[in-house]
Design a binder for these strands. Structure first.
Length: 606
RNA sequence: GCCCCCGUAGCUCAGUUGGAUAGAGCAUCGGUUUCCUAAACCGAGGGCCACUGGUUCGAAUCCAGUCGGGGGUACCA
């Protein structure tokens, strides 16, 4: 982790100050990893709740016991000494230590220098700002979306899709060789059901026109009829068996279902702007399961339980993993295990492999990961070469609709496409009333409507369940995608209207307002936010951050003087305009890039 | 029964490895446009941070238990 140079300087000075103020105790404690070390202080630095207190804060409570002194007294003494030390650094007044408050030392960064360094960096590197090479040469696998064939693309698939898409972009920004994986469910007993349903109630017409809708209708009908007639499930099992045995009729139907679904998925991904690097269905693993099972057997991990072939995991909390059902058929866990090996073979030594899948499946992943760990242990794979420790389940909460969980079977489902088109329609109306001669209105309306939909998914912590609420998704006020896009469009407008070449060679002393400094601090925070997201696999940090940045900028934009006049960005004072335009450019670049990382477009106008 | 997630303003949610008076959006009320895009900005009201106990200089945050909601719990994925 690259260290923040301002923090580092502050930590060094503070550490030195402690040694100077308490030499006897320092002599006793000595160097090393203790409360006096730069390292310790650096890691303890916090961000003050109140921005006016400074850029960072160091709480001295932990030193209190050691120093046998009261925290406020310690803070006061050390603050004075830190200030003296920092002032003695000639010609380099980057940071300063303000008067201590309570038990905290507060550090400030010289605003003019922070502004200059930050804006120069952003303007110089443009959308590369925040890039890193920490991932250089490392493969990062991310599986997301993974819809089921012969089922429609509902909003429930949306979360996985947009989360994964965002993570893919973020890891790329950090230099990883990212492999975005789509792993559609194109195998398993549900195809037996589809085949039975088609043979009973469908015909060629089912596969024409709106084929996906027709297939869904068959699927729903199957689940209604099976209530009355449980023997349908036996037929379905038989039909799937036919498929597995390579029966030509069954295979042809399956191929057709697949083709229809893939065409539909590709269309939806195009709409969403989502991309993948590697797409393979469950069926592609059919040949790879047997070798995997043999490996497990050779390792002595398998046993027969109630007629099924299982792996006992030696864990009270986890049921055994099922490799084969009583009838010999494999299960999705078998396929997932084979898939893990497949991925490892294709991308040897990957850094991490993520599964962006609903939290309801967390036990399933625990079972699979544990099984892989046992296998590698049994095979004597050295610890640092094990794939099993690099597998991570990135879970997320459910999407509910009207308080109930959505289910394809019950037909309680909202189609993603309906949501997007409704959102776009509303955006279009809004644009018409405000900016009716906007060129490319349909495209912009789509981008902004889609922005609302995606942002609604990414602006909350993954683990939370979210209730799908039309009013909320279609509300473009406040914390929303359109709010960010609108702010961005205004920034672009400013840049156009100024008619200036953007230059970072401006007089940063002119940025004196609190509001402006707040914006600069936020811009300076961006690279750290990006790495936080990567570590926690939480894109909402970016969503949250962008809202704060947009808000901060909007209050610069509408700042008023004492007489109530707006302090405009573009004025007849050339120097002031130039530096403010540099600030505008920097904000615009960061919002643009942040939106990109979330998977949103940033229109020029709206 | 056991396991996982969640419980913060009327609603939807933030709250970084415990830290300085618990924040934002929506909704409500009040203000701002001779207009660099008002999809915005400024302000007001609104809280036993589910409950109880513990750890600590300090707990919304950590631990134990209770209550409430959701999910999972071997031959579906």
């Amino acid at each position: 982790m690259k260290k923040d140079k301002y923090k580092q300087q502050f930590a060094e000075a503070t550490a030195q100050a402690f040694r100077n103020v308490y030499p006897e105790i320092y002599a006793k404690v000595g160097d090393g990893d203790n409360a006096f070390s730069t390292e310790f202080i650096y890691n303890s630095l916090e961000t003050p709740k109140d921005r006016s207190m400074g850029r960072f804060a160091f709480p001295v409570f932990r030193q209190a016991g050691l120093l046998k002194d009261k925290p406020p007294a310690i803070a006061a003494k050390v603050a004075d000494e830190t200030t003296r030390i920092l002032k003695s650094h000639e010609g380099d007044q980057l940071i300063s230590c303000s008067k201590a408050v309570g038990g905290f030392l507060n550090g400030q960064v010289n605003p003019e220098i922070l502004a200059g360094e930050t804006l120069r960096k952003v303007i110089g590197s443009s959308n590369q700002y925040g890039n890193s090479d920490i991932g250089k040469g490392k493969a990062y696998l991310v599986e997301y979306s993974s819809p089921n064939i012969a089922k429609p693309f509902g909003v429930m698939h949306l979360r996985s899709t947009v989360l994964g898409n965002s993570l893919r972009r973020i890891f790329r920004k950090l230099g990883y060789d990212v492999v975005g994986i789509n792993y559609p469910g194109d195998w398993g007993t549900q195809f037996g059901k589809m085949i039975v349903a088609y043979e009973k109630w469908g015909d060629e017409k089912t596969l024409e026109g709106n084929a996906v809708q027709n297939l869904l209708a068959l699927y729903v009908r199957y689940h209604q009829e099976v209530e009355q007639n449980p023997s349908l499930d036996d037929e379905a099992r038989l039909a799937f068996r036919r498929l597995e045995e390579g029966n030509p009729d069954a295979l042809r139907l399956w191929e057709t279902f697949k083709k229809i679904s893939h065409a539909e998925f590709d269309r939806v991904y195009g709409l969403l702007g989502v991309e993948f690097d590697w797409v393979y269905g469950e069926s592609e693993l059919n040949e790879r399961m047997e070798p995997l099972i043999e490996r497990l057997e050779t390792a002595g991990l398998t046993s027969i339980s109630q007629g099924a072939l299982v792996v006992e995991l030696g864990d009270d909390q986890l049921p055994p993993l099922l490799l084969r059902k009583g009838d010999g058929a494999t299960l999705y866990a078998t396929r997932d295990l084979a898939g893990m090996v497949y991925r490892w073979e294709r991308h040897q030594d990957f850094h991490e492999s993520l599964y962006v899948v609903n939290s309801a499946q967390s036990d399933h992943f625990k079972q699979c990961f544990k099984t892989m760990a046992l296998l590698e242990e049994a095979e004597g794979v050295p610890l640092d070469e094990r794939m099993s420790s690099r597998l991570k389940h990135v879970g997320f909460g459910m999407i509910r609709f009207g308080g109930k969980s959505m289910s394809t079977r019950g037909g309680n489902i909202v189609l993603l496409e309906d949501v997007i088109s409704e959102a776009s329609r509303l955006v279009r109306e809004k644009i018409k009333e405000k900016n009716s001669d906007l060129a490319g209105i349909d495209q912009v309306a789509h981008e902004v409507g889609l922005g609302a939909v995606i942002f609604a998914q990414l602006s909350v912590r993954r683990q939370r369940d979210v209730d799908f609420d039309w009013d909320k998704v279609l509300n473009f006020l406040g914390a929303s995608g359109p709010y960010l896009q609108y702010t961005h469009a205004r920034l672009r407008s400013l840049l156009r209207k100024s008619g200036l070449e953007i230059s970072s060679d401006v007089d940063y002393r002119l940025l004196v307002a609190d509001e402006e400094n707040r914006v600069i601090e936020l811009i300076a925070d961006f690279p750290q936010i990006v790495t936080d997201v990567a570590e926690q696999h939480e894109p909402y940090y970016i969503a949250n951050y962008l809202l704060r940045l947009a808000e901060a900028f909007n209050s610069v934009y509408q700042r008023k003087d004492d007489e109530g006049n707006i302090q405009k960005i573009i004025s007849d004072q050339a120097d002031l305009t130039a530096v403010r335009i540099a600030l505008v450019r920097a904000v615009q670049v960061v919002i643009n890039e942040g939106l990109y990382l979330l998977g949103l477009e940033a229109p020029e106008e709206m």
